[in-house]
């Protein structure tokens, strides 16, 4: 079953409190030299049947209406993960 992977990130101009918390914890564990961290979301959507252009259009709409809030987040990528077809959308 082909899988579509959607990555959502907080917009660059939006402060990311979760990323900030992770960034602050890293040096405490001895991981030095990391200037900043931003935390996003990864969605894995298993799709029934073939992934056509039409399916991708509808997944793109799902990504921008439900999976992300365009006020604070960007959909940074929608990738089809299929060995036979590594096409990027």
């Amino acid at each position: 079953m082909p899988r579509v992977v959607v990555h959502v990130m907080p917009k660059p101009e939006i402060l990311d409190p979760q990323g900030k918390a992770v960034a602050a914890a890293l040096p405490r564990l001895g991981f030095e030299g990391i200037a900043s961290v931003r935390q996003g979301k990864r969605f894995e959507l298993e799709v029934e049947g073939e992934i056509t252009d039409q399916v991708l259009v509808s997944l793109r709409e799902a990504a921008t209406t439900l999976l992300s809030n365009p006020v604070i987040e960007d959909v940074v990528s929608i990738d089809v993960e299929d060995a036979a077809d590594g096409a990027q959308a």
């Binding site: 907080p10 402060l15 900030k20």
Partner: peptide, 17 residues
């Protein structure tokens, strides 16, 4: 109300987390 776009903007985590 923000998610429905009846009001503009959005809420994120408190700055002090």
């Amino acid at each position: 109300l923000c998610e429905t776009h009846l009001l503009p903007g959005a809420m994120i985590k408190n700055a002090h987390r």
